[in-house]
Amino acid sequence: MIIRNLEQLVGTERDVAWGNGQSRRFLTESDGMGYTLTDTIIDAGSESLLQYKNHKETCYCIQGVGEIEDMDGTIHPITVGIMYALDQNDKHYLRATTKMRLVCVFSPPLKGNESHKLTSDGESSY
Score class of each variant (00 low, 15 high):
H76G: 06
P108I: 02
S124D: 15
N5R: 15
K99M: 08
T58E: 09
P108L: 07
V16C: 10
E13H: 11
A85P: 02
P108F: 00
D31Y: 06
E57R: 11
C59L: 10
I78R: 02
V105P: 04
K91Q: 11
F106W: 07
A44Y: 10
V80P: 01
H92W: 04
Q22P: 00
S125I: 12
T97F: 07
T74V: 12
T58D: 05
Y93W: 14
I3D: 05
D15S: 12
G122S: 12
D121A: 10
H116A: 09
M1S: 09
P77L: 07
T38I: 10
E67H: 05
C61W: 09
F26I: 09
D90V: 00
Q22W: 12
A96S: 15
N20H: 05
V103W: 00
S48W: 02
G81W: 04
G34E: 01
I62K: 14
R25D: 04
D72G: 09
T74Y: 05
E67V: 06
N89F: 10
K53E: 14
G19K: 07
T97V: 08
G19D: 13
K56P: 00
G34D: 07
N89L: 04
V105Y: 03
T12A: 12
M100T: 04
T28F: 00
F26T: 03
N54M: 06
C61M: 14
L50P: 00
R24I: 03
G66I: 02
K91R: 15
R14A: 10
Y35H: 13
G21H: 01
T36W: 02
D31C: 12
I2A: 03
S120P: 08
G112M: 13
L49N: 10
K91W: 06
I75M: 12
K53Q: 12
H92T: 03
L27K: 04
K91D: 02
I2E: 05
V10S: 11
E114D: 10
T97S: 14
K117M: 05
M100V: 03
A96F: 11
G73S: 02
E114T: 04
S125L: 15
F106L: 08
C59N: 08
L37E: 04
E7V: 01
K99D: 02
L9R: 14
Q8E: 14
W18K: 00
